[in-house]
Design a binder for these strands. Structure first.
Length: 786
RNA sequence: GCCGGAGUGGUGAAAUGGCAGACACGCUCGACUUAAGAUCGAGUGCCGAAAGGCGUGAGAGUUCGAAUCUCUCCUCCGGCACCA
């Protein structure tokens, strides 16, 4: 039989594994070190796509190998079930978001199981379950009591299509990260989390993390730290002064004018003194109307209006300089005011040239002395803004707050948690900035927990990113009804040893959950120290995976009709082939992108068929000693042990592609020379087991084994066997390869030189020239310099 | 503009100071076959009949030796960006 019946085999073993519970992870296991490997849980969109396969089935290879190495591996999965897209889809189909979401979960769970991944399903977590979001609300209240959650009137990003506010992180180039609609700026009262209080820790924490530089750098850019100085400029003939933030106090002598952001509060204060008030007001209004995107488009084309009638004094030289308002200065950064130094700053120069303002080219002065002279205050600014977490949408965890006219903002008492999301008829979002929950009067009207009088519930729900900021902790103790997780159980697993996920979460989920973890730590919610490793960072190691493109090398999308449906390929070739093909397609530890090659997958299918043919031949079972030639047996064993070393190392480094190529080389050799004895064949099967769990399990059983191959120990290589007794000596002349021949491993330089010089080819190239220098590298090469 | 990553056959890619292109796809030829988009075998960087030469984005440098290290430049991808 040439092809194996993947449908039968894969179904059989998936059932069997579920029945025997071999992937169930105990909290602790005698003699086994705990190891937590995490993949980002999926959003229940309704269908598993190639990206999911790539995200789950490839790290499964790693999890399986760690388990075979004797680690007690936590490899959990769940669903990030609240959120906008599911809600939008449900509204479109005119069905209940809850129904839609949970039906999707049921379907996707089946699909995920068809991968044959070694997830422990008994730890499954669904963020939309009241048992889960009870604790999301509980943690929110802890943050509130610590002063890390607050409600404030601020300018926010409003998506007019999704009809909700968005966090800064959810706006990309001025557009809604979910639907691509241009966002508007609105002034609204919103719930925020004080992530800025952790800016410095989020930055410094990166130093000790074993993460790729590009991930750390993206977070650093996002946090955007800059060290500078606050300098006061007094307004002439007035008691007022204006503070500016600058990183270049050394250029203070060159400051020839000042610019305020159009929304700077002092503008209104000084209304009476401003002679051209009408003009100023008009400009400020227009600037306010512009979206982020418009401002960006107009970049470099500077606009502005002078505040006529007032001047400020440059504290360095006491000269009076004019004040302008211009939208190239941002209200939300620094003090919302700058000293403009056209001689040293490109933007200031462009502005000065347009409005004919003086450009004074002065030499720089000493930073520290000038700071002292003008009484400057050193200050650090961050680009990072507080995280807006309230959403004017139905499908999310209700914010557990009650508003009482008498007592103000009150927290829902712990005993009343969870605040259940009520069933309502109309889920549609509204234009007025209110959640659809506002219409659920019965639910909204409550008694104030403090005074017992009439009060109203907060009707906004929490951003989905809040739900996912702590899910990795819940996996440690997923069914606990009395705590989000027991401290002792957290201690078993946290920090996560290896977190694999998508690059798109670098400045969203990854940053948020680091913040959550640090904040929860400060609230005393975590047991520390944890496993003697990192104290205040949740993820020891993070690796970003790449993305799978369509066969045309473009991002998969329905409009380009280049979408690969993994289900089709599973039906055709089986899960083992699909997962192994994805592992083979390119290095997983680099965030590259790889086109799906419909032909390429055939290579893996052929490989697995060949393994099956080898196994089905019963050659190994019948010939425990395999070939009769001892030296051939030794060579085969040597290749095998080299492969053990290579595959083990490559899996650890997420270089699954080269691990598979090593396995292919081994199989090519077995087929050519046909000399593996049964013990060695079994070692090979164990190497293949994490990659093709179903196929290897079937062959393993056919060999008469009673226990699963996945419970076997990962093979150890024999170092002595790997060490070669001879090697191929490369002969270089002036660094160019000219010849090579087999020599004993321990050959001396003198012996090697003698043997090399006696070779015909070398003689003919050297002629009667004498080498001026000979470089001999043991076990590699000899180089003659002439 | 600042920062980070990357550029290697027709394609996905190996090799991180020592034989460039492992492994796989594709392609060519052959075998088996009624058949082949199945399977097996041989070949496959470029030029050349061969000997040989050339070749890792471009150019320089370091080195006995560079895809790999250094510098300059070009291109692509990503983060930030009128952030003072």
């Amino acid at each position: 039989m040439k092809n194996y019946d993947h449908k039968k085999i894969e179904k059989k073993w998936q059932k069997e594994w579920e029945k025997s519970g071999i992937y169930k992870t105990p909290d602790e296991k005698r003699g086994a070190e705990n190891f937590y490997t995490l993949v980002e849980f999926p959003y229940p969109s309704g269908n598993l796509h190639t990206g999911h396969w790539y995200a789950f089935s490839v790290p499964d290879i790693f999890a399986r190998k760690k388990r075979m190495e004797g680690k007690n591996v936590l490899f959990p999965i769940g669903f990030d079930a609240f959120g906008l897209p599911a809600e939008n889809a449900a509204i479109q189909r005119k069905i209940n978001p809850k129904k839609w979401t949970y039906e999707n979960i049921d379907y996707m769970r089946k699909q995920i199981k068809s991968m044959g991944a070694s997830f422990d399903w008994t730890r499954e977590v669904i963020t939309a379950d009241p048992e889960y979001y009870k604790w999301t609300q509980w943690i929110f209240l802890k943050l509130f009591k610590k002063g890390l959650a607050y409600q404030a009137e601020t300018p926010v990003n409003w998506c007019p299509k999704d009809k909700t506010v968005l966090a800064n992180e959810q706006v990309a180039s001025g557009k809604c990260e979910r639907c691509g609609t241009e966002v508007e700026q609105r002034q609204m009262k919103q719930w925020m989390l004080k992530i800025t209080a952790y800016a410095e820790q989020l930055l410094s924490g990166l130093e000790k993390l074993n993460w790729k530089e590009e991930i750390k750098e993206a977070q650093r850019n996002w946090i955007g730290k800059s060290d500078g100085v606050l300098i006061k400029f007094s307004i002439s003939n007035s008691q007022f002064s204006i503070e500016v933030f600058t990183t270049r106090p050394d250029t203070l002598f060159g400051a020839t004018y000042m610019v305020l952001a159009p929304e700077h509060p002092l503008i209104k204060t000084l209304k009476n003194k401003i002679k051209n008030w009408a003009e100023v007001e008009r400009y400020a209004k227009e600037a306010k109307k512009k979206t982020q995107l418009q401002r960006q488009k107009e970049e470099k084309d500077k606009t502005g209006v002078e505040l006529k009638g007032i001047k400020v004094i440059n504290p360095a030289n006491k000269e009076e300089i004019p004040i302008w308002i211009a939208d190239y200065v941002l209200g939300g950064y620094g003090t919302g005011a700058i000293m403009a130094v056209p001689a040293h700053d490109e933007r200031d120069r462009a502005f000065a040239e347009k409005f004919k303002l003086p450009i004074v080219d002065r030499s720089l002065v000493d930073k520290d002395e000038i700071i002292k002279k003008v009484d400057g205050q050193k200050q650090t600014q961050y680009r990072l803004k507080d995280w807006v977490v309230s959403r004017q949408r139905y499908w999310g965890a209700p914010i557990p707050i009650i508003h009482c006219e008498k007592c103000g903002t009150q927290t829902v008492p712990e005993k009343d948690l969870p605040v259940l999301l009520p069933e309502i008829k109309d889920y549609k979002p509204r234009d007025d900035g209110k959640s659809p929950l506002a219409k659920a009067e019965k639910w909204v009207n409550v008694k104030c927990p403090k005074c017992g009088g009439d009060a109203e519930r907060e009707t906004d729900t929490l951003d989905t990113f809040v739900d996912s900021s702590w899910y990795f902790l819940r996996y440690c103790d997923p069914r606990n009804a009395n705590a989000f997780a027991e401290k002792a159980k957290i201690k078993n697993w946290i920090p996560v040893d290896l977190y694999s996920g998508g690059v798109e979460h670098t400045t969203m989920h990854l940053l948020y959950s680091r913040f959550f973890y640090k904040a929860m730590y400060d609230c005393g919610l975590l047991a520390l120290p944890l496993r003697g490793k990192l104290e205040d960072e949740p993820y020891q190691e993070r690796r970003n995976r790449g993305i799978i493109l369509g066969p045309d090398g473009q991002k998969m999308s329905k409009s380009k009709s280049n979408v690969i449906n993994p289900d089709e390929y599973i039906a055709k070739f089986g899960a083992d082939t699909v997962r192994m093909y994805l592992a083979f397609i390119g290095p997983y530890n680099e965030a590259g992108s790889y086109p799906w090659d419909p032909h390429g997958i055939l290579g893996i299918k052929r490989f697995l068929d060949r393994v099956w043919v080898l196994a089905a031949s019963k050659f190994f079972a019948l010939n425990p000693q395999a070939g009769s030639d001892a030296s051939q047996n030794l060579n085969a064993a040597r290749t095998l042990h080299k492969t053990i070393k290579k595959v083990g190392k490559d899996i650890d480094e997420f270089k699954f592609n080269t691990a598979i190529s090593a396995l292919m080389i081994l199989v090519n050799e077995i087929e050519r020379n046909w000399k593996l004895e049964i013990g060695n064949w079994k070692l090979f099967l164990k190497l293949l087991a994490p990659f093709a769990p179903h196929l290897t399990e079937e062959i393993w059983e056919k060999l008469g084994n009673k226990n699963s191959i996945h419970l076997e120990a990962w093979p150890k290589y024999d170092q002595k066997l790997i060490e070669e007794t001879t090697f191929e000596l490369i002969i270089q002349i002036n660094g160019k390869m000219r010849d090579k021949f087999e020599v004993p491993a321990g050959i001396s330089e003198a012996e090697a030189t003698g043997l090399t010089l006696s070779r015909e080819k070398v003689k003919s190239i050297l002629g009667n020239k004498k080498p001026s220098k000979i470089i001999f590298v043991p076990k590699r090469l000899i180089n003659f310099v002439i």
